[in-house]
């Protein structure tokens, strides 16, 4: 059971609206997003329910759910939303808020997803561009799942899908600097 009426002000809703530039209050729960969303079946709460949770101010529940991490940003929902709510922006907004406010979902899948993104970003930081094999390997090591997709690797290598060497750009230095500056900017906020 959820008890409502204890919060003085729904600051969560305000924060989400501000961050995303959307207005969650416009949602009238038609559910078109849910059946549009290709991954709603994997989410703890499909987009419609996330909207309602934000409206009710259920901050922790929203942050700890896997929903926002499963959003693929394919924009199919916002394209069909009868109230033209930018749902991917809302999802992105709560993701950023959760990171800022230090909420970490304990969901295994979410951990894998965030780990992947971290590795990916790290990869760009190091080389300026993405280097697929290394990324896959690192992902497998860090998620302690050494043999995931390993059956694909020989074939992919053989077919030239994934190259062994990697090209690092001259820009790698510039990118590393950008990362630092961006971090600084976040901190200064």
């Amino acid at each position: 059971m959820i008890t409502l009426g204890l919060q003085e002000k729904n600051t969560f809703l305000e924060a989400v609206n501000k961050k995303s530039g959307a207005n969650v209050l416009e949602c009238y729960q038609c559910g078109k997003c849910v059946s549009t969303c290709p991954v709603s079946g994997y989410m703890d709460f499909p987009p419609r329910e996330v909207m309602q949770m934000i409206k009710l101010g259920l901050k922790e529940e929203t942050y700890m759910a896997n929903s926002m991490w499963f959003c693929l940003t394919c924009s199919a929902c916002s394209g069909r939303c009868p109230r033209e709510i930018d749902i991917p922006a809302v999802m992105e907004g709560i993701r950023h808020l959760a990171i800022e406010e230090n909420y970490h979902s304990q969901d295994k899948k979410v951990k894998e997803i965030t780990r992947f993104h971290e590795i990916f970003l790290d990869m760009i930081k190091r080389y300026g561009r993405n280097y697929e094999l290394r990324m896959m390997a690192e992902f497998n090591i860090r998620t302690r799942n050494l043999f995931k997709d390993m059956h694909l690797a020989p074939k992919a290598l053989l077919k030239g899908k994934i190259t062994l060497g990697h090209e690092s750009t001259k820009s790698a230095k510039a990118i590393q600097k950008m990362y630092k500056l961006a971090e600084k900017l976040e901190k200064n906020k």
């Binding site: 038609c30 559910g31 849910v34 059946s35 549009t36 009868p82």
Partner: peptide, 8 residues
Amino acid sequence: YLRGRVSK
């Protein structure tokens, strides 16, 4: 009766 908007 099904409550929801059809998406596709």
